[in-house]
Simulated assay, not measured.
Amino acid sequence: MTADRTKHVKMLAEFLRVPFSEDEENAGVPEEVVKLCSFENRKGLPVNSIGKADRIGGLLMKNSSFFRSGKVGDWRNHLTEEMANKLDCIVQEKLKGLGLAF
């Protein structure tokens, strides 16, 4: 999907039965949707980069905490091995019986 984002935005629009018109495509609307929805753009918006969100239990988290790079293996920068193992066990427990191999 990341290799051709515009193609997938068009496919999504068609799936939702609101395809882009020829005029919209010629005007670059699909490309603008990709730009506006990009990680870089959303991360830089003031609402996402400043302020704090009130979580259940009164724990405040910076809004910027909700944005991570999403790179493979980046969890090592945020979780300990013990935390990762515990999370793996929870996922396996919740998904057991679905025929998935871990």
Rank of each mutant, 00 (worst) to 15 (best):
E82K: 08
K43M: 11
V33D: 10
V9N: 01
V47I: 11
G57T: 05
H8E: 11
K94N: 00
F39R: 12
K7L: 07
F102H: 02
R68W: 07
D74E: 14
I56V: 10
E93S: 05
R68F: 05
G58S: 08
D4K: 08
A84M: 05
K7I: 00
H8N: 10
E24S: 07
F20V: 04
E82L: 05
G73D: 13
L45F: 03
N26E: 15
E31R: 13
W75S: 03
T6C: 11
P46Q: 08
L12D: 00
L87R: 10
E22T: 14
N63Y: 11
R5A: 07
I90M: 04
M61W: 09
A13N: 02
S21H: 04
K43H: 09
L79F: 13
G70M: 05
A27Q: 15
L45R: 10
N77Q: 13
K94A: 00
S49T: 12
V29M: 14
I50H: 13
G73Q: 11
N85M: 04
F67I: 08
K96G: 00
K7A: 12
G70E: 01
K35L: 14
S65G: 00
K52L: 00
V47D: 10
G58Y: 01
R5S: 05
N26A: 15
M1F: 14
I56Y: 08
G44A: 12
M61N: 01
I90F: 06
F15G: 02
E82M: 02
R76C: 02
V72C: 10
L12V: 12
D74F: 11
K86S: 06
C37L: 13
D23L: 15
L87N: 06
G73P: 01
R42Y: 15
D4G: 03
N85K: 06
A27H: 13
I50Y: 11
F67A: 02
E22Q: 15
L100S: 01
F66Q: 02
R17Q: 14
H8I: 02
P19R: 06
V9Y: 03
C37V: 09
F102R: 02
A101H: 08
A84I: 01
E24K: 04
E24C: 09
V29D: 02
R42A: 14
M61Y: 08
F15C: 05
D23F: 14
F66D: 00
S64F: 01
K62P: 04
S64K: 14
L100V: 03
G57E: 06
G58R: 07
Q92S: 03
T80F: 08
K52A: 02
F67L: 10
G44L: 03
W75T: 00
F20E: 01
C37T: 13
L59T: 12
E31Y: 03
E40L: 13
G70A: 04
N41L: 12
N26Y: 14
F15L: 09
T80M: 05
P30I: 04
F20H: 06
L100I: 06
M61P: 00
S38Q: 07
K86W: 10
K35T: 12
T2D: 10
N26Q: 15
R5Y: 07
Q92T: 00
D88L: 07
K10I: 12
R42N: 15
